[in-house]
């Protein structure tokens, strides 16, 4: 058990290091896209460690407790995440719903802390984040339902193994409509344009993070990196056949994150009600159609 927990902590740490590096590389890629040099690839590490070492402010115990609960929840979620079919901390307990709902503990902690800061801008940011969540989760969960129903398991390693079995395609090919919905939902989850309304960094000096600084902000940065790791890995395992070894995982991970980031950078931004309307129109419809033809008609490519 101790070994498993250590493996889990290792995966969480690896996820943090991986996403922070790839995030840095992507800043450079986006920089080149915009004819800038872009920061060094390890700039994000510098930011985080600088923030952690600074002396910040605290708005009371819930402000601190929320941050701890949020980071704790996210670390716990990452500890369940399989990297490949073999590298997983808790075999057969890597249930899909854990990732959706344990992630929510982290989000709840962050929302609590932000609202506890007493700044109304933070509460507005939380409102937008939760509304966005209501938008992208439902189509995503319907596609996940289809995948679980087709592969006959809700364990992520089993879903990976199912796709790697000879004769089965990756689910992005086997369920093309569902794959499209998956990409859109992933962009919502990652808060990429056009669904980045709740952060909207260039427009308003607000959002959930408005009051943070110092170690609290540093911890929230770590939280953000690990949650991106969880979401992208989830996509890799559900739609791209997972990975049989760590290099394939790295390639797939890097590709997914970079592609999503590139799409994001040529888009504008939706208003919050447009986000909701969008997700409940096309992605939900496509997800339902996909579920119908895959489950009732059995048409899986």
């Amino acid at each position: 058990m101790i070994v498993n927990i250590l493996v889990g902590i290792g995966i969480a740490l690896f996820g943090f290091a991986l996403q922070t590096s790839i995030g840095g590389i992507n800043r450079k890629i986006v920089g080149r896209l915009q004819k800038r040099h872009g920061p060094r690839w390890y700039q994000e590490f510098i930011d985080i460690f600088k923030l952690l070492s600074k002396r910040g402010i605290s708005h009371g115990w819930i402000y601190d407790f929320g941050v701890i609960m949020a980071l704790g929840g996210i670390i716990a979620t990452a500890m369940f995440m399989p990297l490949t079919v073999d590298i997983v901390a808790f075999k057969q307990f890597d249930n899909f719903f854990i990732f959706v709902y344990l992630l929510a503990v982290g989000m709840l902690g962050m929302a609590m802390s932000a609202s506890g800061s007493g700044n109304p801008w933070a509460s507005i940011g939380v409102m937008r984040a939760l509304t966005t969540m209501l938008a992208y989760e439902v189509p995503f969960l319907i596609v996940a339902l289809t995948i679980i129903n087709v592969s006959d398991s809700s364990s992520l390693t089993a879903i990976q193994a199912f796709q790697q079995t000879a004769g089965n395609n990756w689910f992005i090919i086997a369920l093309p409509l569902g794959g499209l919905v998956g990409v859109l939902s992933l962009m919502g989850m990652l808060g990429k344009k056009p669904f980045e309304t709740y952060i909207a960094p260039a427009e308003i000096a607000s959002g959930p993070m408005v009051e943070y600084g110092g170690k609290q902000l540093g911890m929230l940065f770590i939280l953000h990196e690990i949650s991106v790791f969880i979401e992208v890995s989830l996509f890799v395992h559900l739609f791209l056949g997972g990975a049989s070894n760590i290099f394939i995982f790295l390639i797939k991970y890097f590709t997914v994150y970079t592609v999503v980031n590139l799409i994001s950078n040529v888009n504008g931004r939706f208003k919050i009600d447009q986000v909701v309307k969008f997700f409940y129109k096309w992605p939900l419809l496509l997800a339902i159609i996909q579920a119908f033809i895959a489950i009732y008609l059995g048409w899986v490519i």
Binding site: I5, I9, L52, D64, V67, L71, G72, I74, S117, I222
Partner: peptide, 27 residues
């Protein structure tokens, strides 16, 4: 595992510099 996660987060929190306490109106 949730407990382990919170414990790790708490350790990170406690190891870093103590924050300055400010009022709720001071936003």
């Amino acid at each position: 595992i949730f407990g382990v996660g919170v414990a790790i987060a708490f350790i990170i929190f406690i190891l870093m510099k103590k924050s300055r306490k400010v009022e709720l109106m001071d936003t």
